[in-house]
Design a protein around this nucleic acid. Structure first.
Lengths: 93, 93
DNA sequence: AATATTATTCGTACTTTTGCGAACAATTTT
DNA sequence: AAAATTGTTCGCAAAAGTACGAATAATATT
């Protein structure tokens, strides 16, 4: 879970996920035009999201198409919601 | 939101939050006995959670008592759930 | 085959994070 | 007042994260 949260802990990466969610753009190039980072930096962030299992990328020449990894995302959702209810339940102190 | 996620992106900090949620321990000393880090390191993590607004600490001599920051936590919950539904809705690609 | 397009990897620099022990502060107990 | 307890801050070191441009790879176009 820490791994997932860590991957979510950067504005650019959150922006990427929201773009993918809104289907406004799925392609590296499109994101690159919108996000204020160099292409190489964007690649790094995309890789981190991929390594964390949050997205998938497929090479559709000459571009790369990125998608949400729905299975893992369901897991993320589950974990976070578990934490939320845990925290909701109790009045600590 | 990135700030919150970042704060959640470390195993020790997640453990702290779960302890607070379970009320198993609210005191620095108690956590220090369970978590495999030096006291100074624990202080750092507690500080980061505090700076992120996820917990609160009050000094009750001679110990320090930590609690969940419920208001901010509600915000966190809201933000994450918004992202979850955003990601649920669409079939990207 | 040469060129153009797209994206990744490489090399580099800088900043932040993580972690520890020692020193320090604050309070309570002796 | 001295000693003990509790937790933070300081100083340092190692590791990871962030970012860029240049070089590289892979494919499509000319």
């Amino acid at each position: 879970m820490a791994r997932f949260a860590k991957a979510l802990g950067h504005p650019v990466r959150l922006a990427i996920l929201q773009m993918l969610a809104n289907q406004t753009c799925c392609y590296h190039g499109d994101m690159s035009e919108i996000l204020p980072v160099a292409k190489s930096t964007l690649s790094q962030h995309l890789n981190e999201l991929k390594d964390a299992g949050l997205i998938q990328g497929t090479f559709t020449p000459p571009t790369v198409k990125y998608c949400i990894n729905n299975q893992n995302w369901a897991l993320v959702k589950k974990m976070f919601e578990a934490l939320f209810t845990e925290l909701d339940n109790e009045e600590c102190c």
